[in-house]
Design a binder for these strands. Structure first.
Length: 206
DNA sequence: TCTACGATCTTT
DNA sequence: AAGATCGTAGAT
C-alpha cells in the first residue's frame, strides 16, 4: 500500500523519522529506507530553497508527496520526498537503503560490479533506482513509476547532525535532523556522530 | 558569457 | 587527500 498523500502533509522532521522502514519501488527494484535527512526553508540555510524558487528546485516548492530529484557535484542524483504545505519548502533526503528486490538490476546499474550492494549514500540510492531529473516532481503516493509504500518502522532510531552541509550557518549545521535505523549496516558514513534517539533528553528530541 | 561551487563517491 | 564532472546561480 502506498503511503497516502496526507502522510507527507506534516512537519518534515516528523515525516523523515516516519519514513524509516518504508519501501521505495521502481520497476523491479524495491528498497527499504534506512537513513534520511530533513531539510526545510525558511529557517534552514542548508536547504536548497534558501535562495528562492528556481527551475532546479521548483519541486521543493510544489505539493507534498512528490519527488525532488537533482544532480549533485555534476555526477550523482539525489532523491528527496517533498513534505509540508505551501508555506514552506521542505523535503526528506533519502541517504541509505537496504535492497529488497531487483538485485540484478541494481548490480547492472552500478556498472556490473559484484559484491554486497551497499546502498549507503544518497548517490547510490538514486543510482540503484535509475533516477535522474526526468523523475523530478513525480508523485509517489499512488501507483506509478515511482512509489513509496508503507513498511515496518525500525525498533530503534539513531539521530545526529546532517552530512555535507559545511556551507550552512553554524546553528543549522548542528540541527539533529539526520535519522537512521539502528542495528543495520545500511547507514552512510560518517556514522560516529549518530546516537540513539532515546539517549537525548526528551526536550532535546527533534 | 564567465566563474565558482556543491545535501558525493571513488581512488590514491 | 584529491579528482571526477556539470548544471546552476550570481556576477560581468
Amino acid at each position: 500500500m502506498p503511503l497516502p498523500r496526507r502522510f507527507y502533509d506534516r512537519d518534515v522532521v516528523a515525516v523523515a523519522q516516519d519514513l524509516l522502514g518504508a519501501v521505495i519501488r521502481r520497476g523491479a527494484v524495491a528498497l527499504r529506507i534506512t537513513e534520511v535527512e530533513a531539510y526545510r526553508w525558511p529557517g534552514d540555510t542548508a536547504c536548497h530553497a534558501r535562495a528562492g524558487r528556481t527551475a532546479r528546485n521548483a519541486a521543493l516548492f510544489g505539493p507534498c508527496g512528490h519527488a525532488y530529484v537533482y544532480l549533485c557535484y555534476g555526477l550523482h542524483h539525489m532523491l528527496n520526498l517533498v513534505t509540508g504545505g505551501d508555506a514552506e519548502a521542505a523535503a526528506v533526503l533519502v541517504r541509505a537503503c537496504e535492497p529488497l528486490e531487483g538485485l540484478a538490476t541494481i548490480r547492472r546499474r552500478r556498472g556490473g560490479k559484484s559484491g554486497p550492494e551497499l546502498l549507503t549514500g544518497p548517490g547510490k540510492v538514486a543510482a540503484a533506482l535509475g533516477l535522474d531529473r526526468s523523475m523530478d516532481a513525480h508523485p509517489v503516493y499512488r501507483p506509478g513509476e515511482l512509489v513509496v509504500e508503507r513498511g515496518d518502522a525500525p525498533a530503534s532510531v539513531l539521530v545526529g547532525p546532517r552530512v555535507g552541509i559545511d556551507f550552512a550557518e553554524p546553528a543549522h549545521r548542528v540541527l539533529p535532523w539526520r535519522f537512521a535505523a539502528a542495528g543495520t549496516a545500511w547507514v552512510s558514513r560518517p556514522i560516529a556522530s549518530l546516537v540513539p534517539l532515546t539517549s537525548l533528553r526528551r526536550d532535546d528530541r527533534p
